[in-house]
């Protein structure tokens, strides 16, 4: 990638071949009122991309548009293109349930299925999409739980209810659950928002390890977290008309040390938000 060119373009990585997810002029509207407007950036393969900005800037909305989960809200529409490896999520003939299994998601609050065991949670996604082979399921559970750094502590109690785990462990189980279906992209919506500092640190470490297996997009409130874990960073801000806008997209280093927009600097220095 040519850094000189990206500097001029703002939209770092546009057109580059290693973009897993590409947003082109994406707006998300609820009942024809835009929540996020005209966002364009690329999510690069095996990198962590963070979305930062004050509340109301549309980070979570944009993230949920990336696996069409925002459609659960009545009146939601998306304009522009979101391309998953070149395939437009909103115009493809591939059904949304098939697409979603290629884009994992981890939520603010750990949400393991409370009636299922740890093992059943880990392979829930595989079972949903019709995998029946017992050996394959067991192997997947082992692999996914290992990737989520949970295997050693749960390997002797795989049949225990997921609710018996601590909050941090539950969140790692949710990561394992998402990883088990081998997604290309993992979306994380403030995954440490409800965790204590120790569990938060563990998840952050996990994120930096996981990127070798999967491309990660993470929404975070916490600028230090974005700085620590992400390679690229998108800064969003609410405009006058209360619509979120992408102010700047660049490498995390640039965003935090040498931003082009003064508002980005103000925000990262903690002057507002």
């Amino acid at each position: 990638m040519d850094t000189a060119e990206t500097r001029d373009n703002v939209t770092l990585g546009e057109g580059s071949s290693d973009a897993v997810l590409s947003l082109r002029d994406v707006s998300v509207l609820f009942n024809n009122k835009a929540a996020v407007r005209n966002a364009t950036f690329d999510v690069q393969a095996n990198k962590v991309t963070s979305l930062i900005g004050p509340s109301g800037s549309g980070k979570t909305t944009l993230l949920r548009a990336m696996n069409r989960l925002h459609e659960l809200t009545p009146g939601a529409t998306v304009t522009g293109q979101i391309l998953l490896e070149g395939e437009d999520l909103y115009r493809t003939s591939v059904p949304i349930t098939v697409l979603r299994s290629r884009i994992g998601m981890v939520f603010q609050r750990p949400n393991p299925f409370p009636t299922m065991s740890i093992y059943d949670n880990a392979v829930a996604g595989l079972r949903f999409i019709g995998v029946k082979d017992k050996d394959f399921l067991e192997e997947s559970a082992h692999k996914a739980l290992s990737e989520a750094a949970l295997w050693d502590s749960v390997k002797d109690r795989l049949k225990a209810p997921a609710a018996t785990l601590s909050g941090g462990e539950q969140q790692r189980l949710c990561i394992a659950r998402a990883m088990a279906v081998e997604p290309e992209v993992l979306l994380m919506d403030e995954p440490t928002a409800s965790l204590d500092p120790v569990a938060t640190k563990q998840i952050e470490e996990l994120v930096t390890v996981l990127k070798q297996f999967v491309t990660i997009v993470i929404v975070t409130h916490n600028m230090q977290q974005a700085n620590r874990v992400s390679d690229n960073c998108a800064f969003l801000l609410m405009a006058e008309d209360r619509t979120g806008e992408l102010i700047e997209f660049d490498t995390t280093e640039k965003i935090f040390n040498d931003p082009k927009d003064s508002r980005t600097l103000d925000y990262t220095l903690g002057r507002f938000g």
Binding site: N111, T115, F128
Partner: peptide, 28 residues
């Protein structure tokens, strides 16, 4: 909690699967 529905949908579950495999067991 709607998080359970969203969690299942994000794994690629169909609406029928969400109700049968996640919602109904939670409501038992």
């Amino acid at each position: 909690p709607k998080e359970l529905t969203e969690g299942a949908l994000s794994l690629g579950a169909t609406r029928g699967q969400v109700i049968r495999k996640v919602i109904l067991p939670s409501c038992k």
